[in-house]
Amino acid sequence: MSENAKSLGIGDKIMIQMQDVNKWYGQFHVLKDINLTVRQGERIVLCGPSGSGKSTTIRCINRLEEHQKGNIVVDDVELNGDLKNIEAIRREVGMVFQHFNLFPHLTVLENCTLAPIWVRKLPKKEAEEVAMHYLKRVRIPDQAHKYPGQLSGGQQQRVAIARALCMKPKIMLFDEPTSALDPEMVKEVLDTMIGLAQDGMTMLCVTHEMGFARTVANRVIFMDKGEIVEQAPPDQFFDNPQNERTKLFLGQILH
């Protein structure tokens, strides 16, 4: 994909604005002055060594983690202590977790319709139609009436993606979506995510899948010790990293 094609579909609207965001776990300063602007349709990959704060960064965007200093504005809504704002943001931000976090007591279909029915107030029938649409999209409509425990890891993660999409979110957050998968199942999940990117979804993805970053991302962000060390378009990031720390990291993960 050329640089041009990649930046196609990026709007002017700012979807996420993080300004001087700081966070501590007890005494531990986990995020230091994070500044990040994400425009509509942008696809951003965050990478870095473990403990670098990349997961914490995206978890601050939907308030699974609370930041203690700085501002976060998501889709023009200020993320502060106000529960109304938090719920408004969560309605528009879908999230996919490393360990899928499907609800084991509900069928695949029920997993997908739960939030649309109870949060979006869709009638059950309509919610099921939406759910089947997205289950078809992740290519597992035939598993709709099974329980998560009956599916493989890759299938579960695709259900998790469909479940998030059923809320018709404006932003999708992926927190190491392929790290817990068997090697044979990584591709099916990545393919689903690539499809999503091609449809213009605004995406933030914490991942070590550098191939995915190269194909899909507009921008790759490298974090270490709670700071953004370097950010650049993927070609530049991989072929010509500017920072010593980035070079070292890439040297270790790209054999």
Partner: peptide
């Protein structure tokens, strides 16, 4: 109940009571 269940429920916008009533308690009581 794993923390991830609480997080998944919150991340989809379910408030406290709905998350408890629809996701956490059915599993915990079972």
């Amino acid at each position: 109940i794993p923390k991830g269940q609480y997080e998944a429920a919150s991340a989809m916008g379910l408030g406290y009571w709905r998350a408890m009533g629809l996701v956490i308690l059915p599993q915990a009581l079972k």
